[in-house]
Design a protein around this nucleic acid. Sequence first.
DNA 1: TGATAATGATCGGTAAAACCTATCATGAGT
DNA 2: ACTCATGATAGGTTTTACCGATCATTATCA
Lengths: 297, 297
Amino acid sequence: MNLRDLRYVIAVADHRHFGRAAEACHVSQPTLSGQLRKLEEMLGMTLFERTNKSVVPTQAAEQILPLARAAVENADAIAALAQGWRDPLAGSLRLGVIPTLGPYLMPRVLGPLKQHYPNLDLVLWEDVTDNLLSRLRRHELDAALLATDVMEDGIVDIPLFDEPFLLVMPEAHPLSAMEQIDAARLETVEMLVLADGHCLRDQALAACKQPGGGRADLRATSLEMLLNMVAAGYGCTLAPAVTVAGRASPVSGTVTRPLAPGTAGRTVRLAFRETFPRRTAVEAVAAAIRTLHPGGT
Amino acid sequence: MNLRDLRYVIAVADHRHFGRAAEACHVSQPTLSGQLRKLEEMLGMTLFERTNKSVVPTQAAEQILPLARAAVENADAIAALAQGWRDPLAGSLRLGVIPTLGPYLMPRVLGPLKQHYPNLDLVLWEDVTDNLLSRLRRHELDAALLATDVMEDGIVDIPLFDEPFLLVMPEAHPLSAMEQIDAARLETVEMLVLADGHCLRDQALAACKQPGGGRADLRATSLEMLLNMVAAGYGCTLAPAVTVAGRASPVSGTVTRPLAPGTAGRTVRLAFRETFPRRTAVEAVAAAIRTLHPGGT
DNA sequence: TGATAATGATCGGTAAAACCTATCATGAGT
DNA sequence: ACTCATGATAGGTTTTACCGATCATTATCA
């Protein structure tokens, strides 16, 4: 059985006339007659009682017709759906973002992206790097914004921009007197870091050569919380530029200073499966983010 | 798009493996790969992300799959329905019957017919001849049990049996003394007949040469009512043998006498469109009825 | 590290099918 | 008697679905 045949059946039932039905199906009348006859043979029953005067569906055909219509409608729905997905810049793109990037970067990206590609629906998922990569592998995400090198098999990435880390310290901190902090000084500070799993944690600890891992009695799952701890005087922290650059004013009670150029920073990347078919959409997102950082990689 | 292609898509989605999906579809793997690729091209989108390690449906495919499954299920339902109709002696047969035949003949036919052809469902429709023929022409009935010649274009019939008319009269009627009534006597009686439209009315009037049409102040729509009128002494009537032969006892207050052989009677026929495809079923019904009347035509 | 196995893609050729044009048979209307 | 309209049929062409064989890539294992 064939969808085309079902369309023929429906057309004949609707027009009650082989010639007009054939015309509606854009085939010749003999073609339609022949195909219908073959279908009837295959089904082992007569679908239409024909005379030279009239064509009337049999009882069996009347029962079959709604099913045939449903099948054809489903097929048409598939075609319509496909039409919607033809544009790689349409449909939903499931984008993972790490927590130290999402709240700061996405608000500035979503607007312009929606403006350029109104049919592209970004579905955001915030989680730490490892979980994002797992979801990416499991096809639960299409792409992910990360700040680490990706050494994952089958996953590739587009570097978007480099950003330096800044030192954030309590107002009273001695280093607040300096315009710029160098690497040596960095190793001397009491460094507060995020909870396990955040890439920023590891990067901050590496930058200040404190592989042990900050104060064990404090736990911050968000960068905002961490900054509040700094403001409360518990210590200092390293924050990526993007997390402070967008602010109207620094967190009250803290002072922010840049590090000596090249001391520490991170590269933000858009990672995705190399087999992901809608690379165009991924590249559009990458381009949109790069546009916000003209000095990027 | 093709139902076969949809089956391929479903198989690949289910097996997540081209080779096994192909096996399940009883085609070679290259065939399935090729067809799937063509479908993807036609739809203008990728349905599966393939690596040498895994085959995963894209988001678009996930949306399409339920539709594809529905379409395939509809097609399968059509095939199943057709399977049920393959046997011409299965499914419903819409049978019209005239009122002076149905209540007397059908009870004796339905049982044996159901026994022989348990899958054949007779759907009965009782009406007068003209209405039955209209419905037959409009394909609202498949066959009709009539007691008149059918001169309808495109309608043919199978004669089933002849039956004589009997004279039914009030107990006190003078003719009740005779064993048999001849044609001449028949013309002398006060004849009660059924309402307009019943073929028995015309046949009775013709038999007693009273074309005018009985007593205008009496109207009977059923033969039973007519017999009651006879019992009440309003006059006599002609009843087909089948309507009194099946009775345990005659209607009380009436006497029934045969006519002289060949005087008046009717031929019961099974009429149907000559294009009706399930002639086998019609013939089965005809045979069943004839079996009850071994002396039939 | 090199052989083996498994994956999906590709190629060339074949068989089936769908299709078209032309024609036929039948019946209705004029 | 003629014309028109119906659906069916015949013959031939084009499309397409299919298979077997083979390839490229990658994972596995000795």
